Simulated scan of single mutants.
Amino acid sequence: MAHAVIALGGNVGDVRATFQKAIANICGMTQGALLARSSDYATPPWGEVAQERFVNACIEIDTSLDPHALLFTLQKIETKFGRDRAKERRWGPRTLDLDLIAYDDVSVQKPELTLPHPRLFERAFVLVPLAEISPDRVISGRSVTAALAGLSTEGIERLPGPV
C-alpha cells in the first residue's frame, strides 16, 4: 500500500458537502483507506483572482493503485461532481478540484503526471491543510512546515464545524 496526499478544492456550489461525498468516492473507487483529513479552509482565489473564495482541504489515503491509476480515478471523480476540464478556464471556478500532491516518495516527470505536484511549495492553500494533518512529512527534501513558513497565509481561514 502507498500513502497518497490529495488536495481538494472548489468554489462552486456546496463545496463542503461535495468534499464529504468526494472523499467517500475516493476511498471507495481506490479501495483506499482514509488515514487523515484536514479541516476545511476558506482561501483566496489563486491565479485568476476575480472569483469567489475557495474551500480547500487535504486528505491522506492508503491505496494499492499506482500513481497513474490514482490520477485517472481522481479525474473520473471530478467529472462525476460536474468538473469539465475541456471547458473550464485555468484556475477558474470549479465544483471540485482533486490534485495528487504526493505518492509515497515517488518522483514522476511525465506530461500527464508530475509528482510531487509541481506547484506544491507555492501554494499556502495546500500547505496549510497539509500541515494540519502531516506537519513533519518531507516531500522532495522539504518538510511541509518549513515550506509553509516561507509563504504568506493571509486570507486563509479555518472553517468551523465538523469535517
Rank of each mutant, 00 (worst) to 15 (best):
I77T: 07
A102W: 06
I77S: 07
I6S: 02
P129R: 04
E154D: 14
P160I: 06
R137S: 04
G10I: 01
L127Q: 04
S152V: 07
T18N: 00
L130W: 02
R142W: 08
I156D: 01
P67G: 13
I23Q: 08
I156A: 03
G82S: 07
L96I: 02
A36G: 01
P118Q: 08
T79W: 08
P162G: 11
S38V: 04
G32I: 13
R90L: 10
A50P: 08
P111D: 11
T145L: 12
G92Q: 03
E52Y: 11
A69T: 09
P45M: 00
I61F: 08
L96W: 00
K80M: 14
T145R: 12
I139F: 09
E60F: 00
S140A: 09
R89D: 12
R142Y: 08
A17Y: 06
G47N: 08
E48I: 08
Q51E: 04
E48R: 15
G155P: 05
V144M: 03
L120E: 12
E157L: 05
D99S: 07
I77K: 03
Y103G: 10
V163P: 00
K76D: 14
P135C: 10
D99V: 04
V106F: 06
P93L: 11
K76T: 14
I101A: 09
K21I: 08
L74I: 11
D66I: 15
V126Q: 00
R137I: 02
L70R: 07
R123E: 11
G10E: 02
L70I: 03
E122Y: 05
Q31N: 15
I61G: 06
K76A: 15
E122T: 03
L159V: 05
G82F: 07
H68V: 13
R119M: 10
L130F: 07
P162W: 08
Y41Q: 01
A42C: 09
S143L: 06
D84M: 08
C58N: 05
V144P: 06
I77M: 10
E122N: 12
V55F: 03
A146D: 15
T153E: 09
G92E: 03
I59A: 05
A24L: 14
Y103W: 13
P129N: 05
T43A: 04
R90H: 12
P45F: 02
A149G: 06
P67E: 11
C27K: 05
G47W: 09
P118K: 02
T95H: 05
A42L: 10
F19H: 05
I6F: 01
H117E: 08
D99F: 10
A4E: 07
D136M: 01
E154V: 14
G28P: 04
S143G: 13
A146F: 07
R89L: 14
A69M: 14
S107W: 12
P116R: 06
I6H: 05
E122F: 03
L148Y: 06
